[in-house]
């Protein structure tokens, strides 16, 4: 295998981006999986994509547009998720389709070549610059640092928001903090993975970790590990077979999930319940 490619700056940047993006996306993924809000993440990632396209079209920094629109969608979605008064799926479906609609509208309105827009759609980790990595690094430090500092409040909020509130934890602030960090993570990883694919890198590693452990701390660590593993393995396959990197990373993370789901010790829960049922009948 020819490995001299890893000596090039662009490849080193890609490896570092996959490492940082893998950790950050997978950490956010733990919230998304345990707080049962995968559709919220999908909405926010498409909103970020639409915002980035708006930036490209109007000539300002696409990442500012991405961050602004993902936060706007969080501001709409957050109260729905927090109150739990109505089934949020319908509203989320409307917001999701609206975001996707305006994204393609902006793309259509954009004059000239669409290559920049397509890069945001599919991601191009190999073109990441030092400044992209610095931004991603800052977001990684903030996300991981806040999880470390506020772990107990986060744990209680994930377990049960109303119960967390009832013991005096500011669960609503934690929820909005999580949505804010989700927006920041999506924005920072948008160039590497792409607006259509980023959510898979958020969801899959955490969903894989969820299959393997009953410890939340271990779930955070496993999820980050799977995120980095997916990023690096995907990057390697992308290089070896000359296929798109963002898509390969996401497919790899899906394969990791499938393997963990098949070998999940939690599947034995059903066996455990079955045993109790049989004992109860006797």
């Amino acid at each position: 295998m020819e490995l001299s490619i890893f000596g090039y700056q662009f490849m080193q940047n890609a490896i570092l981006s996959a490492f940082l993006g893998g950790i950050t996306c997978a950490t956010i993924g733990v919230f998304v999986v345990l707080m049962h809000m995968p559709f919220i993440g999908v909405c926010m990632s498409h909103a970020a994509f639409a915002g980035a396209l708006l930036g490209l079209w109007l000539g300002f920094n696409p990442l500012i547009g991405a961050f602004a629109l993902s936060l706007l969608s969080a501001a709409i979605i957050g109260p729905l998720a927090d109150r739990g008064e109505l089934s949020p799926e319908t509203s989320l479906g409307v917001i999701f389709s609206f975001m996707l609609g305006i994204a393609f509208l902006f793309m259509g309105l954009m004059p000239g070549t669409k290559s920049g827009a397509l890069e945001l759609l599919w991601g191009s980790i190999l073109t990441n610059t030092r400044s992209d990595i610095i931004f991603l690094g800052i977001v990684t430090i903030v996300v991981v640092g806040l999880v470390f500092v506020f772990y107990k409040e986060i744990q209680a909020t994930i377990f049960h928001r109303d119960m967390a509130r009832s013991v005096g934890i500011p669960a609503t602030v934690i929820l909005y903090g999580v949505l804010f960090l989700t927006g920041a993570t999506i924005t920072a990883s948008l160039r590497s993975i792409g607006g259509l694919l980023i959510f898979s890198l958020i969801l899959n590693p955490a969903a894989a970790a969820y299959q393997l452990t009953y410890s939340m701390k271990r779930m955070f660590l496993l999820s980050a590990g799977f995120g980095v593993l997916s990023g690096w393995t995907g990057l390697l396959f992308s290089y070896l077979f000359n296929i798109p990197s963002g898509a390969t990373i996401v497919v790899t993370s899906s394969v990791v999930f499938m393997i963990t789901a098949i070998f999940s010790p939690k599947r034995k829960v059903k066996g455990w319940q079955q045993k109790l049922l049989v004992e109860g009948r006797q």
Binding site: L34, H36, V149, F150, K152, E153, Q155, A156, F159, H160, D162, M163, A164, S166, V167, G168, I169, Y210, T213, Y214, S215, M216, R218, M219, K266, V269
Partner: peptide, 29 residues
């Protein structure tokens, strides 16, 4: 409250859940 619908795969054990009761008293950080 009433019996809550808890995710059977929730990665927390009984001892950790009881500890949540002390989180408010402990305060942030």
């Amino acid at each position: 409250a009433q019996v809550q619908n808890i995710d059977p795969r929730m990665p927390m054990n009984v001892r950790e859940v009881v500890m949540i009761g002390r989180y408010g008293l402990l305060g942030l950080l």
